[in-house]
Design a protein around this nucleic acid. Structure first.
Length: 752
RNA sequence: GGGCGCUUAGCUCAGUUGGUUAGAGCGUCGCAUUUACACUGCGAAGGUCUGAGGUUCGAGCCCUCAAGCGCCCACCA
């Protein structure tokens, strides 16, 4: 049944706003209403979250279509750069292969082919769920015209001075060999150790070796952290022999270029500006005062490794410190770590350094320490902060516009709670690293100038040209030979442009007609990743907001409120549920129970309940239709009984309520009202009453009146239920004896 | 360290600006009917709305505090 109905809709062309019929009053549909679908990953099998998204958006679209709007629901697919590449890498690993065996072009082609294989999966799944989106406007994030727009935006950002490239500390995932944005790093509590190391003050030419002795070295002031105690290990006659630092990562000390203390810390005042000698490396480093240092923590003095810690990097910038990378991208110590340690994996280097420090008397003590560690959100490997050349967007100017728009209500969050979260994040936003060292994505349109044609060296990347094609000559340096940047954009950089990029590349006039779009409906988990960026980039690129309203739905959890994940094995395949109970039942179950802006536990019982409802609808319709053969409401002057008047009044009220609730995104209330009315007022009372009057009519007029009531209430109920349960309502509508339109999907929303 | 949210029937949750006897789905119990529909109908049991205090003629809803649970953000070495 469902396939047949979907085909009927598709063939009618009613998913396409250009093909929608005129309104019942003969007027054109003038009011545009557009939702851009959050594009599912192109290689992905849909999960219940997608089913919820599809249901909510389809409800809105179908409701607005019935209201007479020119509705466009624009579907698409996302290449999902890093996500997809990770999936593909896993597949390679299973086959005993590795991404690093392939050159760039081969790997890209392999992933491309892989995605093509799965391309139609999601699309067919969406159809099974009843999504009334316009497939003729389907877009893919790697379509050439989309890529062109992404390039245009990048160029504009460059021209406006909002893009910079430079060595910055980034979150490096050693497994995936790419930098990640701050949002892609998750934090886990780990049991670790805190090592206390002393760095001799340089004035003492030959610091006397001190043997490792915790009882002597670890002073009570360090353990207790008392603010008023004297500085750790103050030397004889009030001078310092050394300064003591605490660290969880002793191996990074090889790259230390300073020791920092709080500017407010009186204990160390004398030392600021002096120099310390870095143990093991015998390198002199400076002692600086920086407000990033908490005087209460540890010894109040911190070793500064600009190359391997984000905070230290910033301290380094403020004090012009040198940045020495002692850990490489391969998780091993570099040559800069010194001959003794170069080439060692991090863990071994750490072990050896602690041993050496202890042997040489620099290790004061070690203590267990619990703290949070950044890990890759995909593989869980500890993130290695590294300094690397990356591309950044200066985000503050973009953020300011977005913050203002939301504050003024230009862009309205349906749930105020998400607006708060949004504003809080925007207020603390940091520059956005948009380059990724992966191949699956949109390659940066950057061409580095080669100094001389015969040179293949590309480490002098000081001059480059922004162009989507290989440039002929650099206008700045005159170079004629170039090498293209190998980095690709963060997927969200292109996704952030999705609302305008899609509408600018579909039919002519679409952008003018449908932008800004009406609603952005998506899961709250991508508020920062996506919604915030769309608002920022929409304003930046088009001067307009990308959408007027934001509705964020919750996560679907399992019946024990646990997050669904493949590893837990509690993932529900929506299509299996559809096969078992029908798409209508699943859709209704997803919106019926709870407000969909908070997380929803999923339970198959809920679907079964709605399957029963569908059955009830079916049977009520069967009864009604069998008693309405040849019925025509025209030229009937019904004489209503008290019961008739009551049900018509109730019908008016439920129409009013459902309309109001759909206008305010109260999907569950709208669903419950329609459900309750249909079952307990129409079926239980009205049909029972009408049944008798048709079987044993008191008069011919009473019989036609009863038929009229049946026809009217059933017809309007179908319209009310259609956004939620489109298949069964359309199937019944097609059997109705008297209908004004070709299909229910383009009927007129009932008036109270 | 900051911020947000939740706590209502056995379970999952509604309850829109404070206004009679606090609702739904599922589950439980009793009765009825072979019916458009047993994927049914009628009815019943089941709640000191987390706790304490306050505002009010009136509080599940507003305010304060407390407890439990959950989530988000953050540069604690």
């Amino acid at each position: 049944m469902e396939d047949r109905i979907y085909k009927l809709w598709e063939e009618s062309g009613f998913f396409n706003p250009d093909n929608l019929p005129k309104l019942a009053n003969g007027k054109e549909r003038t009011k545009p209403y557009c939702i851009i679908m959050p594009p599912p990953n192109a290689n992905e099998v849909l999960h219940l979250g997608h089913a919820l998204m599809t249901t909510l958006e389809d409800i809105l679209i179908r409701y607005r279509r019935l209201q007479g709007d020119a509705t466009l629901w624009l579907p698409g697919a996302d290449h999902a750069g890093f996500e997809t590449q990770v999936v593909f890498e896993k597949k390679l690993e299973k086959e005993g292969r590795s991404r690093f065996q392939f050159d760039r072009e081969t790997l890209y082609q392999m992933i491309w082919d892989y995605v093509q294989e799965n391309k139609d999966v999601a699309r067919n799944q969406l159809k099974r769920l009843g999504a009334s989106c316009d497939w003729s406007r389907n877009k893919f994030t790697l379509d050439k015209d989309i890529v062109r727009i992404v390039y245009q935006t990048f160029e504009k950002l460059c021209k406006d001075g909002l893009i910079y490239r430079g060595p910055r500390i980034i979150n490096w995932c050693p497994k995936h060999q790419t930098g990640l944005s701050d949002l892609e790093v998750k934090y886990e509590d780990r049991e670790d150790k805190l090592w206390y190391i002393k760095y001799p003050i340089v004035e003492l030419k030959n610091p006397p070796p001190v043997s490792f002795d915790a009882s002597r070295g670890g002073q009570s002031s360090l353990r207790g952290g008392s603010k008023n105690s004297s500085p750790p290990l103050g030397g004889v006659r009030g001078d310092f022999d050394y300064i003591e630092v605490a660290t969880t990562r002793p191996e990074t000390m090889l790259g230390d270029t300073a020791v920092a203390v709080s500017p407010k810390d009186k204990r160390y005042k004398k030392l600021v500006g002096q120099r310390a000698l870095l143990p093991l490396m015998n390198r002199e480093i400076s002692i600086v005062a920086d407000s990033a240092v908490e005087m209460e923590f540890g010894t109040g003095a911190v070793k500064v490794t600009p190359a391997h810690d984000a905070t230290d990097f910033e301290i380094g910038q403020r004090h012009n410190l040198e940045s020495i990378s002692v850990i490489g991208r391969n998780d091993k110590m570099t040559a800069a770590a010194g001959a003794v340690y170069a080439g060692l994996p991090i863990a071994e280097a750490r072990k050896k350094i602690v041993e050496d420090l202890e042997a040489q008397g620099f290790l004061m003590k070690e203590e267990p320490y619990r703290h949070s560690v950044g890990v890759c959100y995909k593989c869980g490997r500890v993130i290695e902060p590294l300094v690397s050349e990356q591309w950044f967007v200066k985000i503050k100017p973009l953020a300011e516009r977005a913050v203002k728009a939301v504050k003024k209500g230009e862009v309205k969050f349906i749930s105020a709670k998400y607006e708060k979260i949004f504003q809080h994040w925007m207020a603390n936003i940091r520059d956005w690293n948009i380059s990724r060292q992966i191949v699956w994505g949109i390659r940066l349109p950057v061409w580095y100038c080669l100094a001389s044609p015969d040179s293949t060296q590309q480490d002098e990347k000081s001059c480059y040209v922004i162009s989507d094609q290989k440039p002929k000559k650099c206008p700045k340096c005159g170079a004629t030979e170039f090498v293209q940047e190998t980095d690709t954009f963060d997927t969200w950089f292109s996704s952030g442009q999705w609302p305008f990029a899609t509408l600018q590349t579909t039919n002519a006039g679409d952008f003018e007609k449908f932008y800004p779009t009406a609603v952005m409906e998506t899961g709250w988990d991508i508020l920062f990743f996506w919604v915030a960026r769309m608002i920022m980039m929409g304003f930046y690129a088009t001067g307009q907001k990308p959408f007027s309203q934001v509705y964020m739905h919750g996560l679907i959890r399992d019946k024990d409120k646990k997050k669904m994940s493949k590893s837990k094995g509690n993932v529900v395949n929506p299509l299996a549920v559809v096969d078992e109970n029908g798409a209508d039942a699943l859709r209704m179950a997803l919106v019926f129970n709870a407000a969909s802006d908070s997380d929803l536990p999923f339970n198959e019982d809920k679907v079964v309940a709605q399957k029963r409802f569908a059955n009830k609808i079916w049977n009520a319709a069967r009864f009604s239709l069998s008693n309405l053969a040849g019925f025509n409401p025209e030229n009937i002057k019904p004489k209503f009984t008290a019961a008739d008047k009551q049900i018509l009044k109730d019908l008016g009220e439920v129409i009013k309520k459902v309309t109001k609730d759909l206008d305010s995104f109260n999907f569950h209330e709208a669903a419950q009202s329609a459900y309750h009315f249909f079952w307990h007022q129409f079926c239980d009372k009205c049909i029972e009453d009408v049944k008798k009057r048709i079987k044993e009519p008191r008069s011919e007029l009473d019989k036609t009146t009863a038929q009229y009531v049946l026809w009217k209430v059933l017809g309007d109920s179908l319209k009310l239920l259609h956004p939620f349960m489109p298949f069964i309502t359309e199937a019944i509508y097609q059997e109705m004896p008297y209908k004004l339109h070709q299909a229910l999907i383009v009927e007129t929303w009932p008036a109270e």
